[in-house]
Design a protein around this nucleic acid. Structure first.
Lengths: 248, 248
DNA sequence: CAGATTTTGTACGAACCGGTTAATTTTTGT
DNA sequence: ACAAAAATTAACCGGTTCGTACAAAATCTG
């Protein structure tokens, strides 16, 4: 019977040292890691493109370098596959986010960097955005199952919290905000830019939604966030220095 | 053959005066208007809940007070039904938007009203948001077909344009912005609040995403928009008057 | 080498699902 | 009143699609 092999996460204690891993160069015939990864990559594309109900298992199998049988062997069923795809996508994003080294920068600059990172990341990774959209259509039912994801995201808030505290200390950020408010704002703008590009562009055909205009839109998003967080007097100053409003 | 009846819009010249319409009180057995509307309403719910590929024609038919055959009779096929649902949804929204009488208000107040209207509308009409999300998943392919929608939305920009011009004239809005930039910002925040509520709440459980917190979140969105549009000095002034920053 | 794991391949079944055929009832035009 | 057109009903069909059963082989691990 198509039994799912024992918990993958725990069944991999051979930490790239004992068993002949792929790093060794030896071209192994049976490479479960690679097979799994391959299925996951293909599935990610298909789910992101067609949604959970729209994606076809046979189609995914065909684009894999292995067979349909293996999908069920490793992931149980369609929903299991989807859940793993979702987890993998979130994991990938949050890793990049944590790699940012913002703590040594002046607060306003750090915030700008964070916004720019988020904006460009989302802009260049529409598959992730689409997966999250799809998951929201499903009321976050599959995300709810995943313990992994929730823990990952606590870090983001802490990260922003440090930057914000430093900015308040320095007197350039206005007091009374919560880190999650700032995160929500940044997410909303960076996300919407990708998630609603199709319909928005269809209705208004705005040049900033095109490839060439994305830079200008990013600058504007930075502008919006800074005007929200900065002390009004600091905004005034920034305008004079033309740090802001380079979108005109 | 399941032919679609001649263009509905033109096939209704009996302007509620000649043929025995439903207003007449006579309980007619065959009521195409009502049948069509009933199908459309049920379909809207089903598509919004399950997406285009997720929705089931049989399910829609079952929840209708008529039969599956009628769906095909009036809308041709699944995609045709979906397209009509989408159009109806957009139409409904834009009507409310144009009913706002903003031109006689002071600019900042008018802008606040517009933001509040958009925010509450979206917050209370998640089906519309979900339909737009779904349409974006499909790359706006069905919206592209609809001539109707594009023309409707030109009005929104003009509306904001008038308010913005008045604000600049009065010296409370900073110059150099485009109406569409403001519209994009408002849309993004009001939309994201609903579209990503499921996943965002799952990850962070933030009280402002709950029913009770929506008012506070709306105030904050108003705050964000005004800080973006207002002349920095006006922001300063507004803060002193505590018109803004009531979110703390 | 033995036992477990990974892989292949096919064929199938059973439910599901979008769409149709055909016949019936009501309305409408004249 | 009557024929044509429009609205409606019910049973039906063929293709799709998820998932499995079965049979077997290749490879890794201890």
């Amino acid at each position: 019977m198509g039994k799912i092999p024992a918990n993958r996460e725990q069944a991999k204690p051979s930490v790239e040292g004992k068993g002949p891993a792929k790093a060794g160069g030896r071209p192994r015939k049976y490479d479960p890691e690679a097979t799994r990864a391959n299925i996951l990559a293909v599935a990610m594309e298909e789910f992101a493109e067609n949604g959970l109900s729209g994606a076809r298992i046979d189609e995914i199998a065909a684009k894999t370098r292995t067979s349909k049988r293996m999908i069920y062997y490793y992931f149980g069923d369609k929903q299991g596959l989807y859940r793993h795809v979702l987890e993998a996508a979130y994991q990938r994003v949050r890793l990049g986010e944590e790699a940012l080294e913002l703590d040594h920068l002046p607060p306003a600059e750090a915030l700008r960097r964070l916004v720019e990172f988020t904006f460009t990341h989302h802009s260049k990774t529409p598959e992730f955005i689409r997966l999250v959209m799809i998951e929201n259509i499903h009321h976050g039912a599959y995300l709810r199952e995943s313990e992994v994801i929730r823990t990952l995201n606590a870090g983001v808030i802490a990260h922003i919290g440090r930057v914000y505290a430093a900015g308040c200390e320095a007197g350039v950020f206005r007091a009374g905000l919560e880190p999650i408010e700032i995160h929500w704002l940044i997410s909303a703008l960076a996300f919407f830019n990708v998630s609603n590009r199709a319909t928005f562009a269809q209705i208004f055909d705005w040049d900033r939604l095109q490839e060439d205009g994305q830079g200008a839109l990013m600058a504007q998003v930075v502008d919006i966030v800074l005007r929200f967080v900065l002390e009004p007097s600091a905004v005034q100053a920034s305008c004079d220095e033309a740090h802001l409003s380079e979108t005109v």
